[in-house]
Every structure is written in C-alpha cells, then in structure tokens.
Design a protein around this nucleic acid. Structure first.
Length: 603
RNA sequence: GCUCCUGUAGUCUAGCCUGGAUAGGACGCAAGCCUCCGGAGCUUGUGACCGGGGUUCAAAUCCCCGCAGGGGCGCCA
C-alpha cells in the first residue's frame, strides 16, 4: 500500500489534482499526507481555503461507511490544506506481517522508476598511498564507500568494490630512501604500515635540514622507473608492509574489496588513449610537444608531457577505460574527497570529448573535509589523526562505559563489546552527516553516548532483544506449545544469516489492529517508510539519510517503551506489541548493517 | 586574481535539488521522571535561517550583489 497514491486516488474523484503536490506535512499533528490547494485558486476562482473545505465535505458526505477512505481514518480541511490521517490499525495490519515474514529482506530490491538499480556498479574507495598509514579522512572514505556499496547491493545491484593503490611516485620513494639510509635493515616491531610511515616522517625531518634529500628522492624515482633491481626490491618489501597493515585496518572495519588496482601497473597505459585522441584531432600538440586538451569551460589540460611521460590524468583516463572493459559497468562511482572535484570534472569532460559510450556513466561521490577541533589535519604538522589510533581510542572509551554498567563480564567479553560499540560510535558519527559537507570530528564528543550516536541506536536494539529474551525465558515451554504464534518472533541470530531470516515465520496471529496509540502509530509509520528510505539512500548515495531515519526510529521506540508496557499487558495486546517491537528490531538490525554497523543483542 | 562549494540557536546538524501551514533533531544549560520489560533512557523549558536586493499569492529553499570561511586553479598525485 502506498499512502501517496491512495490519497491521490481519493482526491481525483473530487478535484483535478497535480499528484506531485502531495506532501508529507512537517508537523505530524497535521496528518500523514497533505494536499495544498493554492494552485487551484485561479482556475476555480475560489479561495484555496474554500476549495479544501468543499472537497472534504463532499468526501465525507459520500463516505458514511469509512471503508472508502481506507487507509485513512480521517480527512480534514485545515486552511488551504486537505490533510489525510492514516488509520494506524489498518497500516499496522498491513505492514507488520510483511516485516515478520520478510525479516531482514524487508525493503530489499527497492527499484522504483526513479532509482532503478543499475545492473553492475563499481564503487572505488579507500585509495591509499603506500608511504604512510590510513588516517581520519580515510575512515570517512571507507565508511561512506562501504555503506554505499551495501545500500546499492541491497537495492538490487551487483556491486564491485574496488580499491586503487597509489603505490608509486616520489612520496613513496621518500619512505624508501629514509629506510635505506637510516633503517639499517630494521624489521617491523609495530604495525607494518605504521612502520613504513615512521620512515616517511624521518624523511621529512631530515629533509628540513638537508635540502639535497628531495633531489635524492627524485633520483630514486628515476631508478625505480628504470627498473633498478635494488630499488624495486626495496619497493616491494615496503609496499608489502603497507598492504598488510591496511588489510588489518580494513578487517577491523569490516571492509573488503573485490578488486585491487595498482597505479604502478597502469601509470603509463593512458598514453595510447591520448595519442589516439591526438590523431583524431580531439587533442592538440603544444609548441613544446606536450599533448593538451582544450576543454570547453576549462583551462587547457596537459595529458602528456613533452618527453612523452604521462601525468595523473592520463592514468585515470586509462583506469576508467579498463574498468568498463573488464566489467561492462552500468555505473562507475569514485569515492574521493572534495578537493578533487575539479579533477573529476575535467576527467569526465575528457570522456565526453573522446565520445566514449560510457561517458555519462561515471560519478564522483565527493565528500567534504574532516576537521579536528583545532583545525585541519595535516600530516606534516603532526595534527594528523591515525585511523588505527582512533579505532583503538574509541574501543578504550567504550570499555570504560561498559565497566560502569557491568562488573560481571570477563575481560574478553568487555573487549569484544567495546570494539563493536566503539566502531559503531565512529562510523555513525562519520555517516550521519551528508557526505558533501565538511564536518567536524571531535574524538571526545564522538564517543559520547548521549545524543545522535550509533550506540543510541544500538541501545534501542539491545533493549528490544532484552525484552524478547525475557519473554522467551518466562514463557519457555509454557505457552510455546499452545501458542506457537507468540514465540515465532523471538530474536534469533538473524543478523548474520539472511537465508534464515528470509524463512517465512509460521502462522503468526498477533492482531496488529490493536496498536492504535500515538506511540504505536508513530512506530508503524516509520516501519512503513523503511523501504523508501533505503531506496532513496541508495539512489542518492547518501547513507546519512538512513542514519537519520534510524535515529528517528530508535527515538520513537524509546518513547513507545516508556509509554507502553509490554510484558505485563494482557495477552492479546502483549502479543501485538511483541510483534511490533520485533519488527522494529529487524529494521534496526538491517539499517545498522547497511551502515556497516553491528547490532548487538547485549551491550 | 579567476573559479567551485559552504554559511541555520553557545556548539553540531536536518530541511535547499523538486518554494507553501508553528524551521526538525542533538549537545550544552535549567527543572522533573525508577514498587515498572536495561536510566547508554524518557518528559518539560531555553535558543537559529550571514547581510541587502529581486522573482512569487508564498523564499531557509530560486536569482543577483555583498560579507565570512573552505577547496581548486601543476607538464604533483
């Protein structure tokens, strides 16, 4: 059932409406759907207030039996608006059984005409440099890339998660050079990517005193390009350290990739594309011999230097071509920081100049800068926040909070829960803000469990599990045989196994029409909206929309929890409420999962 | 200098694309709520659309001019 089209159908009998004007009122007290009558004022030569009044009068006159108003229980005119009020009992009877049946698949495959899922999509994210460990900016990148991939997959697309390793260049040589000069063959005793990064710092320090080092690094790059054995050997060794460290961090975050690309493999392969373009007259040669592109609305862009070597743009040109060739992509998404907005504008413009058939199928998912309380993070100024340090820090802080509340847990259990909660706090904080915006990351504030946080949402989930657990314990064996219906909704480990989750629950008989209180109705409406929310979030590459929704749902649940007793209620109503909270549990679980966050049963 | 983006309470943000009814939420601050299913909670109060024009019956939203902050403007990646 769709509220919008239901309202449209009812209205059309009385007014030549423009369906697109139907809106959800900002204030819930004004109904669930509203139609503003301003636009009809001229044609009907009547004040919008009177139009609204007239329509509602004829509606109610015809429908003494309320059946025809379904799914609404009330339609009224307020000023120039016609407001529709949902019948919560009807909606609940409609929606809750669907969730109980579909469980974690509720909302899957949301292919509306507007956001029809592309068949095959590639999401490229992470894109680390191999000369130093991941930092705070990468955490935002990873959180967004991973969540968007999950959302698109859930919406019905085949998603390939890819990662381009920037593994060559003078910055890489700097770490190598420092290790060669001052490392004395030292083997890593710390996390291996940090070990590499240590030498990058060493280089920068030494280079401040000794300017010649910059030239030495350039010289090392030339050797690398010439294929010098020693240099290549060192390069392989140190990159292997970097990768093994990165993988550890990806693992902690629950991120994995289907395809890795390496800059060193492709950095020269764009030349042919450029020369081809030159032959076809798309590009031109500069006086000095460099190949440049004149892009409408942009400054001329060099694509090949006079000496024939390629630039950053050249390899990106090639990499995109490679991706489409290898995978027949319907869309290629680059998750890259907003400082590269211009680069991608130019890159996509080049695709169009070259008339590639897939030229319109690339998008740059741009995300804003991450600021610390005391300004922007910069690796050279030592204000950089290391990704692993942050993760550890979050877990440590979570540990303190857990210990405040439980003194009977083993050290191991505390550590386990702390990581789940700490990561939730971190990821949720990064995802709740619209990707396009710059954001402020305050490590202390982010771990606070008050407010719009991951742990707040997790807590709602754990609380529901707790109630269901208690119910199950109290009624173990007693009602189970006589009333299998009520136990069909007890929590299970549905979080991990969709196959189990999608198994239809057997003959559930709780009567959702008993749920008519405002707090119950609010929850039902939110549950009803979930498929739309995930569909929109996927179509617009905006996990933040889902994060906001989950906050609303968790909040609505907490309000309900305080207003409505569950287990002490008489059986029929109790069962209905158990069904309701179980549905909330499922949606919270799925929603958090799509943000890359776990939904623990206890915390 | 050119160009792109962003300005919402003490702080962080939603809404802006697709203009409409009292600008939503969080932190903070102030005051309440446990004989009750987990108080990591709930209730109440406090307080905001950068400035100026324009378009419109209607502007936080669209357009223009300012002001402020940030990004970019490499034959770096």
């Amino acid at each position: 059932m769709d509220i919008r089209s239901s309202a449209a159908t009812i209205l059309k009998k009385h007014l030549a409406i423009d369906e697109s004007l139907l809106e959800v009122p900002k204030d819930k007290a004004l109904g669930d759907m509203a139609y503003p009558c301003f636009s009809h004022a001229k044609a009907l030569k009547k004040a919008p207030q009177l139009i609204a009044k007239g329509v509602v009068e004829s509606l109610t006159a015809q429908n003494q039996n309320k059946q025809k108003l379904y799914p609404f229980c009330r339609i009224e005119a307020v000023g120039p608006y016609i407001n529709f009020f949902m019948d919560p009992a009807a909606l609940g009877s409609d929606v809750l059984p669907i969730i109980a049946k579909k469980k974690l698949d509720y909302g899957r495959g949301m292919a509306t005409p507007k956001n029809a899922p592309k068949k095959t999509l590639m999401v490229e994210y992470a894109s680390p440099n191999t000369n130093k460990p991941l930092h705070l900016g990468h955490l935002r990148n990873l959180a967004i890339g991973h969540s968007v991939s999950s959302l698109l997959q859930f919406a019905g697309a085949k998603v390939i998660q890819s990662n381009i390793n920037n593994d060559r260049g003078v910055h890489i040589c700097k770490s190598m050079l420092a290790y060669q000069r001052w490392g004395k063959g030292e083997q890593p005793t710390i996390k291996t990517d940090h070990f590499v990064g240590k030498y990058y710092v060493v280089f920068n320090k030494k280079a401040e005193e000794n300017k010649a080092l910059e030239g030495d690094a350039q010289e090392m790059l030339r050797k690398w390009e010439a294929g010098d054995k020693e240099t290549r050997k060192l390069w392989k060794l140190m990159n292997a350290w970097a990768y093994s460290g990165f993988e550890e961090t990806y693992g902690k975050l629950g991120v994995s990739f289907d395809k890795y690309y390496y800059e060193s493999d492709i950095y020269e392969d764009g030349k042919k594309i450029v020369l081809d373009g030159l032959k076809k007259g798309v590009f031109r040669k500069n006086d000095d011999g460099a190949v440049v592109a004149d892009i409408p609305g942009h400054d001329p862009k060099v694509l090949l230097r006079a000496d024939g070597t390629s630039v950053y743009m050249t390899q990106d040109l090639y990499l995109a071509t490679l991706k489409f060739k290898e995978y027949q992509l319907d869309q290629s998404i680059h998750v890259v920081g907003s400082e590269q907005n211009y680069h991608f504008q130019v890159l996509f413009a080049l695709f169009k100049m070259l008339k590639y058939p897939w030229a319109g199928k690339c998008s740059h998912l741009s995300y804003g800068m991450v600021y610390l309380p005391h300004g922007k993070m910069k690796s050279r100024e030592g204000t950089v926040v290391d990704a692993d340090d942050i993760i550890q820090n979050m877990a440590d802080l979570a540990k303190v909070e857990i210990r405040k509340r439980h003194n009977d847990l083993s050290e191991e259990e505390v550590g386990k829960r702390a990581m789940v909660i700490g990561l939730a706090a971190l990821k949720f904080f990064l995802l709740k803000i619209d990707p396009s915006r710059d954001m402020h990351f305050d490590p202390k504030e982010s771990i606070s469990f008050d407010g719009e946080t991951g742990p707040y949402v997790q807590y709602a989930h754990a609380r529901i599990c707790s109630v269901l657990r208690k119910f199950r314990q109290e009624h173990a064996g007693k009602e189970q045989k006589s009333k299998p219906s009520s136990t069909a909704i007890i929590p299970s480990k549905t979080a991990i196994m969709p196959s189990k989750a999608s198994r239809p629950s057997t003959a559930f008989k709780a009567d959702a029409s008993l749920l008519v209180l405002p707090a119950e109705a609010a929850l039902i409406k939110l549950l009803h909206a979930f498929p739309d929310v995930v569909g929109e979030a996927a179509a617009n590459y905006r996990p933040s929309a889902l994060a906001r929704y989950l906050l609303d749902l968790a909040q609505a649940f907490n309000e309900f929890y305080h207003a409505c007793p569950i287990l002490t209620e008489e059986q029929k109503l109790r069962d209905a409420r158990l069904l309701l909270i179980d549905c909330v549990r499922v949606v919270l679980d799925r929603g958090l999962n799509l943000l890359g966050i776990q939904a623990p049963e206890e915390m």
